[in-house]
Design a protein around this nucleic acid. Structure first.
Lengths: 118, 118
DNA sequence: CCTATCCATTGACATTCGTCGACTCAATCG
DNA sequence: CGATTGAGTCGACGAATGTCAATGGATAGG
């Protein structure tokens, strides 16, 4: 937020001099951007976004065997998407016998939601 | 939102029968998910997320030549990211002589922000 | 035990992505 | 006009992605 851009140049550069001031972008912002971009990237697939949507609406733990018939993809592909969501911290899972239950991690969405909502 | 999942199965399938009810996922939700995933995907890169951040904070039109020194990437790469943001509808641009000015399209973020914020 | 079931992993494949250097093109200045 | 500048495009490259069929490992039921 220390970024304070000047207005655009009104004329051509005097030949040799740089176009603009070398504005420094704070590293703390950069790290925050990396975190939020990771979350956004995980949501950047329709299947994964719908998975998070279903898990959020259900507000509980959902068995994988209930998620599979919701999508036109194979079970290994769904498993792959769930792994991506897990790696991004968006969901967590719990194994109970044969079945695996998934649920959302609300904290993971908070930072991105806050930034988007201003 | 018509999705109303049953609780997970308590026992193994009786061999032959399907594990779960064939839940139908509404197509309208699917199309909305595709739109929002497209926006999320555009934000799924740290450079692009920071670009949107800078443009939003500046709340005006920013010249490309002012954006280039903010990042450790080449000018063609930045141009490529701006194109991606344009294609996703997140930003728009306007050419004035030699310079190109970019600004955010607030509407594009609204749907994703609304979904994230519940 | 033996078999069926759930779910994850592996390997393969085509596609997309992020990045750069080289180039093009329009516009500006002298 | 001729030289220079801003910005977009192109071609190339390695890396990552989404998808599937095949496989594996653990567990429940008979």
């Amino acid at each position: 937020m220390a970024v304070d851009l000047e207005l655009a140049p009104k004329q051509k550069r005097p030949a040799g001099e740089p176009c603009c001031e070398p504005v420094v972008y704070p590293d703390v912002e950069r790290e925050r951007a990396i975190r939020m971009a990771e979350v956004a990237k995980a949501l950047g697939d329709p299947v994964r976004l719908q998975l998070v949507d279903v898990l959020r609406k259900h507000a509980g733990k959902v068995c994988v065997c209930e998620l599979v018939p919701l999508f036109d993809i194979s079970q290994p592909t769904l498993s792959h998407h769930l792994k991506k969501l897990r790696e991004a911290g968006l969901v967590d899972s719990e194994r109970r016998g044969l079945w695996a239950y998934y649920y959302v991690n609300p904290d993971a969405l908070a930072e991105l939601a806050g930034w988007l909502g201003d």
